[in-house]
Design a binder for these strands. Structure first.
Length: 841
RNA sequence: GCGGGGGUGGCGGAACUGGUAGACGCAAGGGACUUAAAAUCCCUCGGCCCGCAAGGGCUGUGCGGGUUCGAUUCCCGCCCCCCGCACCA
């Protein structure tokens, strides 16, 4: 053992030894319980950043703890290796994206190894190699066969910086690109491949009940994103031109209060109405005005509601009433049918709009026992559970709930409407007009049309020599050898699809591949997946709540439906860690507030960085990096190291050995010295806290604080130890427990100290010690005594004293007696072990 | 507007089911060691007040109420900050 703490030397030594011992390698072993720890795989950008360090340090603490608990732990890592940054760098320097990617992977692998995370490197996966991406293609074809992949021309989001299409999930709420947070996306009409995630909308919602150990926040974001609403579609007939207009509503019960119908400016019927109108020119201008403001409204939710009366009317099938048709800027074409009925009395927007345009307002729902208001001041949306319909013909007196059911049924039987469910989520557009991604395995044949590449011809390899321009054309289109091919059906001339897949496809199933990274006959080895899945703990950033985390759930459902897996959800428990902040802002190169992990490792060692990151804030919260904070962590490690080395050298080779249950009741607390008792108590209190916390609460900052307290205690007992008041075997037990706890947070230093105690086995192979509740209890309690809720004194009492005795002691306490002097005691409250409160008049 | 999370010393943060608020650490101030510095060690450290001192009093967890012997914690009503969604009919 090193006698002074030299992290560089110690960390290098143990990283080498761990690799030699294959310490982190695990295999399927049906006899043992498994535990799958997964962290979100990094994009190989070139260097790890503090966010990575935080993510992987949290995962590593858990993985090491689970190893020590005796689980067969799988802890893999890989690379999300396709994507734009490498392609853009390649364009700049006229080199190949793979060159950047593999250089970066090598570099970052080295950095992760320097951090000493317990990865099984044999399972490493890079998504940009044919061995991996051929299975993306295989999945594409399975989707195609099942009607889940389709091609359509549609309006898509185009990022001018990425020079490619984005999925809806990749557009931020401010209308900008997820990668370029200040670049607004444009719209383009393109032929694109889509995956039918909408077919799983209900399933994705429903299975959230399985995700009880996911953060509420993520679930609610996904729920929002899927955006289910149950309602009805009702056909209004157009009086003047003899067509139908279908509106969507969730409140069909209010339809007798309908005073108008609103159309989105983009609604196809608007063109028809223009052509039938008396002054088409003027109307077109008006509609264009509404459309322009609708575009603005997307950026500004408070934009004024404007609209234009088309002069045409629609007939409400329920009451035969004709109401005016307006084009309104707040009606969305891409939700529902792009047409809504206006019920100003019971909808805030309709109310606002009607007041502004002097449209009539008719109340159709009132509280069951309430009166009809004389004048409507605002939209009356709170019906309560006991509302009832009025002014609604045959439906009067029904509750809204009953009315919805009856009216929907009637609309269906009379053929002018039906109950329906709408979702906000749209299909996943996966085509990208870029090079560095998975080629879409489709062939277009003049004779046969769209033909998927047969499985036997997979993978469709990415041609190596391609001119990359970043000018928005699919680079593969410029490679004739790639494009021109033969039709697998008729062998006639054909050409290949030249778009590549969204890189989120790659990350939708990588965690399955870890369990059998090189299998060549199938994307996954079912037996391996059966053993290792589900992922027990997934750890990553919140930014993927409705990107990766919804795609991966979708993928698993498809895999289930094609018989690859037999469970609905891949991840049992999700943890989203907070961001690493510096000087109040997210670390970023542009802000110049980046702290380079490698520099910190060089200065302090990886253990110190880990310790600081875990100590500075609870992992779920954001934390602000402070340069002086890490000094504190460094001081603590140095101090601890010195102390343990010193005590270890004083210990004879006593035969104690920490071994699970054996820790319990090892010492009779009545037979040990006060100093020994103090040490045993503190040790077990710390162990109890750390154990319970690792089991789920995950406030690692408090664990580290408790360990610091234990070290402080050991330090304060220094004189007693030197004076022989603490027997070596008791000291040794404490040190062993301390080191085993440290091994979760600062593994290298812990290994070195462990070895210094004469141990030959890695801490990871030693069972996690069990705490003894009797030891962890307070020794002699100092119990506060309150008089009327105010602290007036303290009594010392042993744990075993009875409440009755405690009452007597408390009243006898000198300072308390002063307050009691002659006054009537009404009652005495005893909280065992906590306090005594004497209530007097 | 809806959903989620917050508001505690100069700072990061403790206080697990209501029970001595401020653990642990950072910063700061004072001291020891040293020719000096670094490192290390010791002391002080929410605010106000009384005391030479040991010690003691009051006040204090965003604001206002309530329940309780006792509230950072529970209830009611507000204010502010962060994140997500947002004219979804």
């Amino acid at each position: 053992m090193e006698s002074i703490y030299d992290p560089q030397k110690i960390e290098a030594k143990w990283q080498e030894r761990w690799a030699e011992q294959k310490l982190f390698e695990s295999e399927v072993d049906a006899a043992r319980k498994k535990y799958y720890v997964l962290e979100m795989l990094p994009y190989p950008s070139g260097d790890i950043h503090m966010g990575h360090v935080r993510n992987y340090t949290i995962g590593d603490a858990l993985a090491r703890y689970m190893w020590m608990k005796g689980y067969n732990v799988i802890h893999p890592i890989g690379w999300d290796a396709f994507g734009l940054p490498a392609e853009n760098a390649a364009i700049k320097s006229q080199r190949h994206p793979s060159e950047f990617t593999f250089n970066h992977i090598d570099r970052m692998r080295g950095q992760l190894k320097r951090l000493g995370i317990s990865y099984d490197w044999r399972r490493e996966v890079a998504t940009c190699v044919p061995e991996y991406y051929r299975w993306n293609q295989w999945f594409f074809i399975r989707m195609y066969e099942r009607g889940l992949a389709y091609r359509k021309k549609s309006r898509v989001n185009w990022c001018p910086k990425c020079q490619t299409v984005l999925a809806n999930e990749q557009v931020l709420s401010n209308g900008c690109c997820w990668r370029h947070e200040e670049t607004p996306v444009a719209e383009r009409d393109l032929e694109q491949w889509f995956w039918k995630i909408t077919a799983y909308a209900e399933n994705l919602l429903e299975d959230m009940k399985e995700l009880v150990r996911w953060p509420e926040r993520v679930l609610s974001m996904q729920q929002n994103w899927i955006g289910k609403s149950v309602g009805a579609e009702i056909d209004f007939s157009l009086n003047e031109i003899g067509e139908h207009l279908r509106i969507f509503t969730t409140r069909v019960d209010t339809i007798f209060g309908c005073t108008a119908v609103y159309l989105a400016a983009e609604h196809p019927l608007v063109e028809t109405l223009i052509s039938f109108s008396e002054d088409p020119e003027k109307m077109r201008r008006d509609v264009e005005g509404v459309k322009a403001s609708a575009v603005r409204a997307r950026a500004d939710a408070n934009l004024e509601k404007i609209g234009v009366d088309t002069g045409f009317t629609a007939r409400n099938p329920f009451n035969g009433e004709s109401v005016p048709i307006w084009v309104a800027n707040f009606v969305l074409m891409d939700y529902g049918t792009g047409a809504v009925m206006a019920v100003p009395a019971h909808d805030e927007r309709d109310f606002e709009f009607s007041v502004k345009h002097n449209l009539p307002i008719r109340i159709v729902i009132v509280p069951r026992n309430g009166n009809v208001p004389e004048k409507v001041e605002a939209a009356y949306t709170e019906f309560g559970p006991h509302g009832k319909l009025i002014n609604s013909g045959p439906y009067n007196d029904l509750t809204p709930e009953q009315a919805i059911e009856r009216m929907t049924r009637d609309a269906e039987s009379k053929g002018f409407g039906k109950g329906t469910v709408k979702y906000r989520i749209k299909d996943w557009g996966i085509s990208r007009q870029r090079y560095w991604g998975t080629p879409i395995p489709i062939i277009y044949c003049d004779a046969c049309g769209i033909v998927p590449v047969p499985d036997k011809d997979l993978p469709v390899l990415l041609p190596p020599d391609v001119k990359l321009t970043g000018q928005g054309q699919s680079p593969l289109a410029s490679v004739p050898e790639f494009v021109n091919t033969r039709c697998p059906n008729c062998n006639g001339r054909a050409h290949r699809e030249t778009d590549t897949m969204d890189t989120f496809v790659d990350s939708s199933w990588y965690f399955y591949r870890y369990t059998s990274p090189h299998i060549s006959t199938s994307p996954i080895d079912r037996d391996a997946v059966k053993y290792w899945f589900p992922v027990d703990q997934y750890i990553g950033g919140i930014e993927h709540a409705i990107l990766h985390l919804i795609y991966m759930r979708f993928f698993t459902k498809v895999m289930r439906d094609i018989g690859l897996v037999d469970f609905p959800e891949p991840v049992a428990r999700l943890f989203t860690q907070g961001m690493v902040i510096k000087d109040g802002a997210k670390m970023s190169k542009s802000k110049g507030n980046v702290v380079d992990p490698m520099e910190s490792f060089a200065k302090y060692g990886a253990d110190t960085v880990r310790l600081y990151i875990l100590f500075a804030a609870p992992p779920a919260r954001d934390f602000d990096w402070s340069d002086s904070g890490i000094e504190g962590a460094s001081r603590f490690l140095n101090r601890t190291y010195r102390l343990v080395v010193k005590y270890a050298s004083q210990l004879t080779s006593s035969p104690t050995h920490i071994d699970g249950e054996a820790e319990k009741s090892k010492w009779d607390l009545n037979q040990v010295s006060p100093e020994e008792r103090r040490l045993i108590r503190k040790t077990h209190q710390t162990l109890r806290h750390v154990t319970e916390d690792l089991e789920g609460r995950w406030h690692f900052n408090t664990d580290v604080a408790m360990v610091m307290e234990l070290v402080n205690e050991l330090s304060e007992l220094e004189d007693a130890i030197e004076a022989g008041k603490i027997r070596p075997e008791i000291l040794k037990d404490s040190l062993e427990i301390l080191i085993l706890m440290l091994s979760v947070f600062v593994p290298h230093a812990a290994e070195e100290l462990w070895e210094g105690l004469g141990k030959s086995q890695s801490t990871l192979r030693v069972p996690w010690p069990q705490y003894d509740s009797a030891y962890a209890a307070e020794d002699e309690l100092e119990i506060p005594v309150q008089v009327n809720g105010r602290l007036r004194g303290k009594v010392r009492a042993s744990v075993s004293v009875s409440d009755e005795e405690l009452r007597r002691l408390a009243q006898a306490e000198e300072k308390v007696a002063q307050f009691l002097n002659g006054r009537q005691v009404i009652k005495i409250i005893v909280v065992p072990g906590k306090l005594v409160n004497i209530v007097i008049r």
